[in-house]
């Protein structure tokens, strides 16, 4: 089954007097349970594609489907609902809510979903333990290291068991050891829960974990490699 389908996506940004094609007729299918790395140099279009898949950015043309539901024509409210129910996000800069503790950050999505407090707290504790943050549940982001914060962000992304996790440069601010631990965690989640991962990165070590590597350049897909076959 196809988890993500993009058909002929185009997106142009205007920077001063110059038009920059971030996506230039991009089409891609990602199967359920896929573990895909989008690789490109800066400005290559990987983050724009990731944002289009996540409904954070609307392409100028083309179509985006999540679980066979077209999303590029949804309203803001419907897109928010889709992100809430089906997609987990991991951002480069951790992006935790500073006034909430690690546990509350993880609970956040579940609480917005309407999960009961008792259930969301139990799940948050379990997932924080799973990502190696047992004992740090009540710390606020400012009291944690970069690696710990990124783990909280990962825990938040997977807490509600989304079908799709989108990660934008998740290891950009982490040291190599922490990066490896994080990618191992992603791999385990992908295998245990059949969660589809789409990761935008230019870190070659991250690419080694992917089942499929999609290379982009100037808004176009220039290479699509099944790394399991390799």
């Amino acid at each position: 089954m196809t988890a993500v389908r993009c058909i002929n996506l185009c997106k142009t940004y205007r920077q001063g007097d110059v038009d920059i094609k971030a996506l230039d007729h991009v089409s891609i299918d990602i199967a359920e349970g896929g573990f895909v790395c989008l690789s490109a140099p800066s400005g290559g279009g990987k983050t724009t594609l990731l944002n289009a898949i996540g409904g954070l950015d609307i392409p100028d043309s083309g179509e985006v489907y999540i679980d066979d539901q077209r999303i590029d024509n949804l309203s803001k409210g419907d897109l928010a609902e889709l992100r809430l129910r089906k997609i987990g996000f991991v951002f480069q800069a951790y992006n935790l809510i500073p006034v909430l503790t690690a546990r509350e950050n993880v609970e956040f999505v579940m609480q917005v979903q309407g999960v009961l407090k008792h259930d969301s707290a139990d799940k948050a504790n379990a997932i924080l333990t799973e990502v190696g943050l047992q004992g740090l549940e009540d710390r606020r982001p400012a009291e944690m290291s970069g690696g710990q914060q990124q783990r909280v962000a990962v825990a938040r992304a997977i807490a509600s068991k989304p079908a799709l996790v989108l990660a934008d440069e998740p290891t950009a601010n982490l040291d190599s050891k922490t990066s490896d631990e994080l990618m191992t965690l992603f791999t385990e989640l992908n295998e245990h829960y059949n969660t589809t991962f789409v990761i935008a990165t230019h870190d070659t070590r991250v690419m080694q974990y992917a089942k499929r590597l999609v290379r982009m350049l100037d808004g176009k897909i220039v290479d699509d490699i099944d790394q399991r076959a390799a």
Partner: peptide, 8 residues
């Protein structure tokens, strides 16, 4: 961030 995570 809250909007991205699905808050309306």
């Amino acid at each position: 961030l809250m909007l991205a995570l699905g808050m309306k």
